[in-house]
């Protein structure tokens, strides 16, 4: 440092090191300052989103007897914070799917008359027993849940 200020003609008039170091240091301090201000603000604004993500981290949902669909019908429920669909097929079997269309996130509906699960937004169609794609733009099958039927109520859990 001291050579730079005393050596006069020997080195170029302004050695870049000192100024660069100072500027980089100031920049770092400014960034740290902005970070210290920005972090609480980010956390403050993100609180509800973080809370609902925590709520969404459940592994199973029990559906009481009185809410269960009749054979050939479906019922909608919340799995954590996401809409989900429990179908009671006419043959007596039970399936449950994440009811969010894999294309652009609309909630899908059960269409027993067409034997499919359908998304009206862009015409995505899924198999009503497996959730596989039947047609339309969806990139992936609907996520299926594990369904257990035990004395009256139904337990839906992550597969």
């Amino acid at each position: 440092m001291s050579e730079a200020s005393t050596s006069g003609n020997a080195v170029p008039l302004e050695t870049p090191r000192r100024r660069d170091l100072l500027q980089a240091g100031m920049g770092a301090v400014a960034l740290a300052y902005l970070g210290a201000l920005g972090y609480p603000v980010y956390r403050y604004l993100a609180t509800p989103a973080v809370r609902s993500r925590l709520e969404g981290q459940i592994t199973s949902v029990a559906i009481a007897e009185k809410s269960l669909p009749a054979a050939g019908a479906a019922t909608m429920f919340l799995f954590g914070t996401r809409p989900a669909m429990l179908i009671h097929h006419a043959d007596g079997s039970w399936v449950a799917f994440d009811a969010v269309c894999t294309h652009l996130g609309c909630t899908v509906g059960f269409e027993p008359q067409n034997k499919r699960i359908f998304c009206p937004c862009h015409g995505g169609a899924y198999d009503m027993k497996t959730g596989d794609i039947l047609g339309g733009p969806p990139p992936r099958a609907l996520k299926a849940f594990k369904v257990e039927v035990s004395d009256g109520h139904v337990i839906v859990s992550r597969a």
Binding site: P40, V41, R43, Y44, A46, T47, V50
Partner: peptide
């Protein structure tokens, strides 16, 4: 009391 850093703001 509930919100992260709400007290600070």
């Amino acid at each position: 009391y509930d919100n992260d850093f709400g007290w600070l703001i």
